[in-house]
Design a protein around this nucleic acid. Structure first.
Lengths: 230, 230
DNA sequence: TCAAAAGTGTTCGCTATACACCCATGG
DNA sequence: CCATGGGTGTATAGCGAACACTTTTGA
């Protein structure tokens, strides 16, 4: 029998973190899922996550998971909701603190984890374990809200990108289409992009300007009380 | 010695909910605090909160706390962040799921709780127990963000209110001042207010129109894809 | 020379803002 | 009759949305 070494006067729930890892493949918003190797929901796809250690904050725990699954040590990660339905885990009471992370698919290394992992378009995922469908939906909603007010989209693109790539990203996240010229103007007027000297040949087509996100000028604007709105 | 009846293979944190209860006194945004009767931080003011029961969701727990402190069974309540710093409680590992609630001060009954409770202006609270200063600050920030996109301010006012009261509320929350005429026009154009037939005499002055929030027309607009923006 | 995609500028309508006068009430 | 504060409308500027032509390159 297992040794039960930890004793409390009152019952305590288990606490986990789960992480919705978003990536962009140039066309669609994708999410990284892992296949469960153990019961319950063995063989089902699920969000990467795990138990919170007693000496780490939730964000530290979520970053640990992120690293274990993608090999990435930086990147945007944000806590967005804690899921606490008493029935959400069939075994015992488990509450989970949910995060979403934005990563560059190209920089992702296979996880150390033996678990099978894969990218899926967010609008076409298989049935997930536990309440992870709900968590994914909530994360997508939050990302959509967030991108109106914070320049987080750049975390999903290479450091240097074309305007068209950026437009596709916004369109994929928000589920709308923009007029190309208006999008260009609006983005440039925000003043948070730096135009690079180099141009890049598109897939056997002509040359396009490259841009990069300019965090300094964004911080500057934010300090001056500027409220980004896209 | 206490009886330790609950046993686990791995250590589990304690989980609490804390609730930032906002009220509006006509001039300033206020928060309900309770005085702690036990160590640690005995005698310090703190946010109402308590341990999550094993068979209730976090929101149910937070509503229970809300009722115990204010006697209110309805009202707006929203989870906004979970605080997990390992050092946030000096006794043991405690994570807290934080909510904010919006109530009408006038409807608040004294809590059943023996604890001393009181309203404080959010910009002038005493030093709080634990990390409750931080939680309060974060709640205020969230409320400010939220009120731009959701018609939640009405939860803080009487059912019937004058335009001036509504303006004062928005000004108190956002920390700005509005032009009276523009505020009137903007609010009325949103189409979520019903003008009542009755007028009310202001404090020994003339008569003013009364309005009430119209949730039906708001739901209708929301379904049509209208995005409220104030 | 033709197709595909990038770069660029103008017009128009709407919305946000700034602003002033009249009226009702109570003292 | 005077002071206080509520109710109302207009003029202007800035922003967002709609929109077309030219240029480059590879096939």
């Amino acid at each position: 029998m297992e040794e039960l070494k930890y004793h409390y006067k009152y019952p305590h729930p288990s606490v986990t973190t789960d992480c919705v890892i978003f990536g962009f493949d140039g066309t669609k918003l994708n999410v990284l899922l892992v296949e469960r190797g153990v019961e319950p929901y063995k063989g089902r796809w699920a969000l990467p996550g795990g138990f919170l250690k007693m000496d780490e904050s939730a964000e530290t725990g979520a970053r640990r998971e992120l690293f274990e699954e993608t090999g990435l040590k930086t990147g945007y990660i944000r806590q967005f909701h804690t899921f606490t339905d008493p029935e959400r885990d069939p075994r015992e009471r488990v509450i989970t603190i949910a995060f979403y992370a934005l990563v560059r698919i190209s920089e992702v290394q296979g996880g150390d984890d033996a678990a099978q992992a894969g990218w899926f378009p967010v609008d076409n995922v298989p049935a997930l374990a536990f309440d992870h469908d709900l968590i994914l939906r909530r994360a997508t909603d939050e990302l959509r809200k967030q991108i109106h007010f914070e320049p987080i989209g750049f975390e999903l693109l290479p450091e240097q990108f074309t305007m068209k790539q950026l437009q596709h990203l916004y369109e994929a996240i928000l589920g709308v289409t923009f007029d190309r010229r208006n999008f260009y103007n609006k983005m440039l007027k925000l003043g948070i992009l730096t135009e690079l000297d180099e141009k890049v040949p598109l897939p056997n087509r002509k040359l396009a300007y490259l841009y990069k996100f300019n965090p300094e000028s964004y911080s500057e604007m934010k300090e001056k009380g500027f409220r980004l709105e896209f």
